[in-house]
């Protein structure tokens, strides 16, 4: 037997960019994270051709999950067309030979920074969230070792205290994003800086969510059909952003999460944060045969019974 028969032909890089040992390690970590919902699992975050803090955690998880039949969507704060999102999407296409898409319904893997799409995700879809700071206890306990003990003891009193202080000082919860949420009744997570609007979408969702922080070298997961409860006082209900009456100036759609665009005359215009969801509505209005999936919110109100 010749050496050539025993070895693979030389290639510039492995399929999916990461080497197989890195992928194997990440898969094991992902399995552990799924087995213990919300528990932060450390991993050896590899160097990727992108700076730390630009989504390297999500990138590594997606690269690990890629297969030639994958259909990948990448969004950055809801937008498919930002430089970061389109660069990452093209990278996946180049190193994995996958199909790139902007349609949530067609994607098998959705990598996202700071948003969950408005259309409901299915059981066969995986949501990968890029996370800058995975540690919910960081603002109250900078010592990682002590924070680990606090997670072990489910000692989350100080997170409640932060919410208490916000109510005392401002009369309402001021936590706009990274809202601390209890997963499966055990671990509190920071669900990446998704807005409060998106947190209920994680509760008892059909899809698997993997949250990964490349710089911090930790990942955690919310498996399908898992309870995700934002921390709320008995007498102060959880409130999402009040966007039920905001209409997107481009698509004329009302009742979804919108970005505010200040106008020169001092007024504000609004556009859908989930850009492709807006594009679908525009196309549909123009008479194209576009299929728009079911949404978690309708008229600004959460409609899913499980949430």
């Amino acid at each position: 037997m010749k050496l050539q028969e025993l070895t693979k032909p030389w290639a510039a890089f492995n399929y999916g960019f990461l080497d197989e040992s890195a992928k194997r390690e990440l898969r094991r970590r992902i399995l552990k994270a799924i087995a213990i919902p919300g528990c932060q699992v450390p991993y050896a975050s590899r160097e990727v051709p992108m700076a730390r803090g630009w989504g390297t955690g999500g990138l590594q998880v997606t690269l690990t999950l890629l297969k030639p039949a994958s259909v990948v969507k990448v969004i950055d704060q809801g937008a498919d067309d930002s430089v970061n999102a389109s660069s990452i999407r093209k990278f996946f296409g180049r190193v994995g030979g996958v199909v790139e898409t902007e349609d949530t319904g067609k994607a098998t893997i959705v990598q996202s920074r700071h948003r969950i799409p408005e259309e409901k995700l299915r059981e066969d879809q995986v949501l990968v969230l890029q996370v800058p700071n995975p540690e919910p206890l960081r603002p109250v306990q900078p010592d990682i070792s002590i924070a680990r003990d606090m997670h072990g003891d489910a000692d989350y009193g100080q997170l409640w205290l932060v919410l208490y202080e916000q109510l005392v000082k401002s009369g309402r919860i001021m936590q706009g994003a990274e809202y601390p949420s209890l997963v499966n009744g055990r671990y509190v997570i920071t669900p990446s800086p998704i807005p409060r609007w998106d947190v209920p979408k994680l509760n008892q969702a059909d899809h698997l969510t993997i949250l990964s922080a490349g710089r911090e070298k930790r990942l955690y997961a919310v498996p399908p059909y898992t309870k995700v409860e934002p921390l709320v006082f008995d007498d102060v209900p959880y409130r999402v952003e009040d966007h039920h009456d905001k209409t997107c100036y481009r698509s004329n759609v009302t009742g979804y999460f919108v970005n505010e665009l200040p106008q020169e005359d001092g007024s504000s215009a609004y556009e859908l944060s989930d850009s492709h969801f807006g594009i679908k509505h525009i196309r549909k209005a123009e008479g194209e045969p576009v299929e728009i999936g079911d949404t978690w919110y309708k008229n600004g109100r959460m409609t899913d019974d499980r949430a």
Partner: peptide, 12 residues
């Protein structure tokens, strides 16, 4: 309140 929160009180 922190002490009460640790003891499980969740009513503001």
């Amino acid at each position: 309140a922190e002490r009460l929160l640790i003891a499980g009180n969740r009513n503001f």
